[in-house]
């Protein structure tokens, strides 16, 4: 319990990222509340600004988890395994936020909290996959075997993302298709709404990078201590 060395504080870059994230998030929320209501659903559209931002970070985090998993298998450096796990963990938290925000939005607009339509079903599979990822990590005690199995799972998990993203185009769904339509290069929203959405996306991305750095540093410290204790 009594560490001779005092644990160091946040590194300056992480702190700067957190502060920047908070400022941009405040600006994003201000813009979201200033943005006009939607002609169809009124002020309910405000859920979009956090829902899309959370979903974006979940996708990004799972993709980064895969990238670090590939790096681990290539270089065999335990740091990459820790960063892969850290990114997957943040991704899972943001995925759960996406599901929660989505349910809050679905009830007043669609009429139900949940329905087994393609986007929601593939989201449930995606979420369950990363819950399984952490159970797998906890189930294996040998660090090297754990890292390799987790890397394989993190690479496999990314397959879920294009399926989840494209589900609204491939199959009949109740979930609306993307408002920023990358496929047809069109944006279906008022400029002021779009700006508010993009600022919120930037804010959550800054949070994500800061969280990943902090989580990675904590994991490195824990690994160091484990080695110390034998």
């Amino acid at each position: 319990m009594n560490n001779a060395e005092k644990p160091s504080k946040l590194d300056p870059t992480s702190r700067a990222l957190l502060v920047a994230g908070l400022l941009v998030f405040a600006a994003g929320q201000y813009l979201a509340f200033k943005a006009p209501p939607d002609v169809q659903q009124g002020y309910l559209i405000r859920i979009l600004y956090v829902h899309v931002a959370a979903a974006w970070v979940a996708y990004l985090a799972f993709f980064v988890a895969m990238t670090y998993a590939v790096l681990y298998l290539w270089k065999q450096n335990p740091a990459y395994d820790r960063l892969s796990a850290a990114s997957a963990e943040i991704g899972l938290v943001f995925m759960l936020l996406t599901l929660f925000g989505g349910m809050m939005w679905a009830r007043p607009t669609w009429g139900v909290f949940w329905t087994w339509e393609p986007r929601l079903t593939t989201s449930a599979i995606l979420t369950a996959f990363y819950v399984g990822y952490f159970l797998l990590r906890h189930a294996i005690e040998d660090p090297e075997f754990r890292a390799k199995a987790a890397a394989a799972a993190a690479i496999l998990g990314v397959v879920n993302i294009p399926i989840n993203y494209m589900s609204v185009y491939w199959w009949r769904s109740i979930h609306q298709t993307a408002t920023i339509d990358i496929i047809n290069r069109k944006t279906h929203m008022d400029a002021s709404m779009l700006v508010a959405m993009l600022v919120n996306l930037l804010a959550t991305t800054l949070f994500y990078i800061a969280f990943l750095r902090i989580k990675g540093a904590i994991a490195a410290r824990l690994a160091e201590r484990e080695e110390w204790d034998g």
Binding site: T121, A124, G132, R172, S173
Partner: peptide, 30 residues
């Protein structure tokens, strides 16, 4: 192997398989 996590892992695998083959099959023609 820690048994309780392994059991949890297998339950998740079963749930994903059920969703992918049962649930998704039904929701494909929503």
């Amino acid at each position: 192997m820690k048994t309780k996590y392994l059991i949890g892992f297998l339950i998740i695998i079963a749930a994903i398989a059920y969703l992918a083959f049962g649930g998704l099959g039904n929701s494909l023609v929503y």
